[in-house]
């Protein structure tokens, strides 16, 4: 009886225990007769074992409480119904008012945000565009601090305070002006030298001149937003909002002091 030729796929199947017993034995016989192939497959097998061993401790860690599935289910079950009902009602209202044909069902995301929620979303969008830019994230470097302050203080109606976040490891990189729903806004960028950046957006608030600090989140960019004396501020980064709370508090403290 002739044996089917051994393929590269068979060799990987051998390593991953994906072959049936008969084929496994055939590959084994082949490898015994071909020491050069055997040496390569032995290295791949070592490699596989080592990788499993190196990553195994992650799976041994206790699961963080925010990944508690039963709590997540309890939390989602309630708002899920409300969210859907609200969105459907909104969709119906839209269709009745304008006979909108192309209404796309996108849940609560499509409801227009206001106040610091809108501000937080704009901060996240600016972050996504500029904080990840490798060529020219900022228009004015940290050294041109005073020029930037002069530039943006015109539309902010007050002198912008550039918070010093170096105590948290984030150094001021520079800033620029960006467009928002409320007109121009100042965008300040910070870098920790380890590849992590933060963005702070400041703009005048038409609808919520005073607002306590609240968590904001949009497409994986998280942070906090608040408003004080008609100016809204939002500090965001590509990390869990928890990590930013104390930094946002520090920024607010410095701004309020001036």
């Amino acid at each position: 009886m002739t044996i089917r030729p051994i393929t590269e796929d068979d060799l990987h199947g051998f390593i991953d225990h994906a072959l049936d017993a008969k084929r496994h034995a055939e590959v084994q016989t082949y490898l015994e007769a071909h020491p050069d192939v055997l040496a390569r497959i032995a290295r791949y097998t070592d490699q596989r074992d080592w990788l499993r061993a190196a990553l195994a401790p992650i799976a041994e860690e206790p699961i963080p409480s925010r990944l508690n599935v039963s709590r997540l289910l309890r939390r989602q079950r309630q708002p899920l119904r409300i969210t859907r009902a609200t969105a459907i009602a909104a969709a119906l209202a839209f269709m009745m008012i304008g006979g909108v044909g192309g209404w796309i069902f996108r849940g609560t995301e499509s409801l227009p945000a206001t106040g610091i929620t809108a501000l937080g979303r704009e901060a996240s969008e600016s972050y996504s565009v500029f904080a990840t830019d490798r060529v020219r994230p900022v228009e004015m470097q940290a050294g041109e601090r005073n020029q930037l302050i002069n530039w943006v203080s015109g539309f902010l109606g007050r002198t912008l305070t550039i918070p010093d976040l170096s105590a948290s490891g984030y150094n001021y990189m520079g800033g620029r002006v960006v467009a928002t729903s409320e007109g121009p806004a100042a965008l300040l960028l910070y870098d920790n030298g380890k590849g992590s950046r933060l963005a702070m957006l400041a703009r005048p608030m038409a609808d919520a001149r005073e607002a306590p600090m609240a968590a904001v989140s949009d497409k994986g960019v998280n942070g906090y937003a608040w408003a004080n004396e008609g100016i809204g501020y939002s500090l965001v980064g590509a990390m869990a909002a928890d990590n930013l709370h104390s930094i946002a508090n520090e920024a607010r403290r410095q701004i309020n002091r001036t």
Partner: peptide, 27 residues
């Protein structure tokens, strides 16, 4: 969950970001 956390961390190489990802996945 243990396997999802391990795969997420091996891809993103950062504990917090990996767990954020697992949380998003669960939701």
């Amino acid at each position: 969950l243990p396997a999802l956390r391990r795969y997420a961390r091996a891809l993103l190489r950062d504990r917090t970001q990996a767990d954020d990802l697992v949380q998003d996945t669960l939701e």
